[in-house]
Design a protein around this nucleic acid. Structure first.
Lengths: 348, 348
DNA sequence: TTGAAAGCGCTACCAG
DNA sequence: CTGGTAGCGCTTTCAA
C-alpha cells in the first residue's frame, strides 16, 4: 500500500550522489569517502528514509532472517526456546520471525510455506506434529533446518532430541521408591507421535519396574485449563491414583488446581509432577517436582546450526540428544499409609 | 541466499503459458480458463514452486502484514492481545509479525523501524515505554497505527486506553472496606509514564479515601521473579503492610510465593491483588483478586483499526477508553484483628 | 571513490 | 482469456 514512501533515489538526489553510493553507505561498505558518507547520512536523516526491506531482500538475495515455528507459544517451554534463539540471532544481525501451529499439521504446512516464501536463511521447527512428506521436501530444499523432537536428520537437517526415556525412567523410579504404584498420566494431543511416545515410555518403564502397576491417562489441551480438565477426567475413573505425571509443567499447574478444589492435599493425598522445569514450576503451590529440559541448550544449538559463522559444521545432518534431569520439589511425597483419602469437597 | 529457487517463470514455461497467467492463477484472479488454471497448478505442484513473498510485496505494493509491538511477550497480558490480533488478521488473509521491546525505548525505536522497513499495512504498539519524537513521526507516516496506553490520538492514529483510575479506585475502596490502611505497591519500570501513573493513582485514591494511609512501593522486573523480589524489598521496609497491590497478575503470583516462603498467610496475614485477570490468576494459590482488563476487546479494536473492510472509520484518530472490572477471589480478606503476625520462617 | 546499468521475482496495465 | 512490458526499490558488478 504505502507507495508514497521516501526511496533511496530521493536520498541520492538530495545528497547529490548516485543510488549506488547511498546503498554503500547504508550497508557500511567502507569504501565511501567520509565527507560523502556524512552527506548521505544527513539526507537520510532529513528525509526520514527507511529502506524497503523487501526490495533489499530481493536484490540482495538474503532476508537475514531466520524462522522459528512452534506448537504453542503460550506454553513457556516454547517461549523460552524462542527467546534464546532471538537473542542469538540479534547478536548476529539477524531477525527472527515466529509462527504458531497450535499442534495442527495443516497449520504447520502453512507456516513452513510462509517461511519459505519469506526466504528465511534458516528454519527451526519446534513442534510435535508432523507431515510426513514435509521432512522429505524440506530436506531437498536449499534452506538449513533444525528439528526438535520430530523428523530425522539428513542432508542440511539437524535433529535435536531429548532422551525422554531416561527422564521418565528416573522419574518413575523415584516415584516407585516413594511407594507409588497407581499412576495417572496427564497429556495433550495424544495422537501425535512424539507425545504418544511419552505415554508409551511411562507404560514400559512402569511395567519393567514393577508389574501390576496401573496407569490411566487423560488428554486435553496443552494449557492450564487442559491440565485441570484432564485431572477431572482421571478422577472420574475412580482408580485412585497416588501420583499424577503430567506431560509438562503447565498442565501440572492446572492439575494442582483441580486437586486443590476437589479437596486433595498435594503431596499428602496425591503426588504431582511435570516436565520442562519452567519458571512457573517454582512459583506454583506446592512447587513442582519436574524433569528439567535444557531449553537454553536447544536455543543455542538452533543458533549454531542456523546462524552464519557458527560451528554449524559440527552438527550438520546429525542428531543431538539432550539429557533431562530430575528436579525434586514439594509436590511429590511418600504414599500416605491410610488408604482412605480425605473426603473431597464439593466442587464449587 | 537461496538464489537457486524455482521461480514463476519456470512454472510458466512448464505450463506453456506466460508469467502473467501464472500470477493470475496464484492470485485467484478468476478470469483464467479452467483448463489453463489446472495446467498451471499442476506445474506449480510438480516444481514445488513457492512464490517469493518479498518480490510479491515489492511488486504488489503491499505486504498484507500487520505488525504488533509489545513490551513483554512473556507476560500473558500481551500474549493474549497478540493472539486475538493474529486470529483476526488470519481471517482477513493477513499475516502478523511481532516484536518485543523488553520495555526499552531504544528497542522500541528499532522495532518500529523494522516494521516500517517491512512495509506493514498497519501497526499496533502495545507498550509502556515511549519515544516522544516517535509518535510525532509516526503520525506523519502513511501507515495506520494503534497505540495502547501511550501516545495521543491524531491523524491516522487511534488510541486505546484503560480507565485505570477507575479500576484503582474500585480496588482500593474494596480494600479499605476490608479494613486495610497500609499498602505495598509492587510494580516494574516505575520510571515509565504509563506505569508511574498507576502508582500515582493509587496514591491519590488512597489519600482521598482516608488520609493517613501509608503506601510504599517497590519496583522490579515484569515477571514472576520480579514480583517475588519486589515483595522482599517491601518486607525489608518493615512498615507492616496489610495489603499488597501488584501492578499486574504475573508479579502478584511472584508476590504470593515470597509471602508463602516467608511464612505469611494470604489473605490471613496479608492480602494480595493484581491487575489483568490473566488465566494464571485463577490457577495460582490462593486464586487472585484482580482487576480485569478486557484484552480481547483490545485485540478486536486493533483488528478493526488495522484490517481492511472493517469499521476502521469509526475509530480513526479517536481515543477509546476501556473500563476495567474488579474480580474478587480468595487472595484478599479482612485485616486480621491481632496486630502481631505469624513469625516468619527462615528463608530456605 | 563513485556512477551506470543490469537485474532480483513478481504484479499490473495495456493490447490483442 | 492471455501475453508483453513496465516497473516495485534496492544491490551489485563493471567501468571510469
Amino acid at each position: 500500500m504505502p507507495r508514497d514512501t521516501v526511496k533511496l533515489e530521493e536520498v541520492a538526489r538530495r545528497a547529490r550522489v548516485s543510488g549506488s553510493t547511498v546503498s554503500r553507505v547504508l550497508n557500511n561498505l567502507s569504501v565511501v569517502k567520509n565527507s560523502t558518507r556524512m552527506r548521505v547520512l544527513k539526507a537520510v536523516e532529513e528525509l526520514g528514509y527507511q529502506p524497503n526491506l523487501h526490495a533489499r531482500s530481493l536484490a540482495g538475495g538474503s532476508s537475514r532472517t531466520i524462522g522459528v515455528i512452534v506448537s504453542n507459544m503460550e506454553n513457556p517451554f516454547f517461549f523460552d526456546i524462542y527467546k534464546t534463539v532471538e537473542s542469538g540471532a540479534r547478536a548476529s544481525g539477524y531477525e527472527v520471525v515466529i509462527a504458531n501451529t497450535n499442534y495442527s499439521s495443516e497449520q504447520l504446512v502453512k507456516s513452513i510455506r510462509l517461511m519459505i516464501g519469506r526466504r528465511v536463511s534458516g528454519l527451526a521447527i519446534i513442534v510435535s506434529e508432523m507431515d510426513a512428506a514435509l521432512t522429505e521436501s524440506l530436506s531437498k530444499g536449499p534452506i538449513p533446518v533444525v528439528f526438535y523432537d520430530v523428523g530425522k536428520p539428513s542432508q542440511r537437517i539437524t535433529n535435536i532430541r531429548v532422551n525422554y526415556e531416561r527422564g521418565v525412567r528416573t522419574l518413575v523410579e523415584y516415584l516407585c521408591s516413594l511407594g507409588h504404584r497407581s499412576f495417572g498420566f496427564v497429556s495433550h494431543h495424544a495422537a501425535l507421535d512424539p507425545i504418544n511416545i511419552r505415554l508409551q515410555t511411562v507404560l514400559e518403564v512402569t511395567k519393567a519396574l514393577a508389574p501390576g502397576m496401573t496407569v490411566y491417562s487423560a488428554s486435553r489441551e496443552d494449557d492450564l485449563e487442559g491440565g485441570r480438565l484432564a485431572v477431572r477426567d482421571l478422577l472420574a475413573l475412580k482408580f485412585d491414583p497416588t501420583a499424577i505425571i503430567c506431560v509438562n509443567d503447565i498442565m501440572a499447574v492446572g492439575a494442582l488446581r483441580e486437586l486443590r478444589e476437589e479437596g486433595y492435599d498435594v503431596p499428602g493425598d496425591i503426588s504431582v509432577c511435570g516436565f520442562d522445569n519452567i519458571t512457573l514450576s517454582e512459583f506454583c503451590y506446592p512447587p513442582l517436582t519436574t524433569v528439567h529440559i535444557p531449553r537454553d541448550r536447544i536455543g543455542q544449538i538452533v543458533c549454531d546450526c542456523l546462524l552464519p559463522g557458527r560451528s554449524a559444521a559440527s552438527f550438520e545432518g546429525s542428531e543431538i540428544i539432550l539429557d533431562p534431569q530430575l528436579v525434586v520439589r514439594e509436590s511429590t511425597g511418600l504414599v500416605s499409609s491410610h488408604s482412605s483419602r480425605r473426603v473431597p469437597r464439593k466442587r464449587s
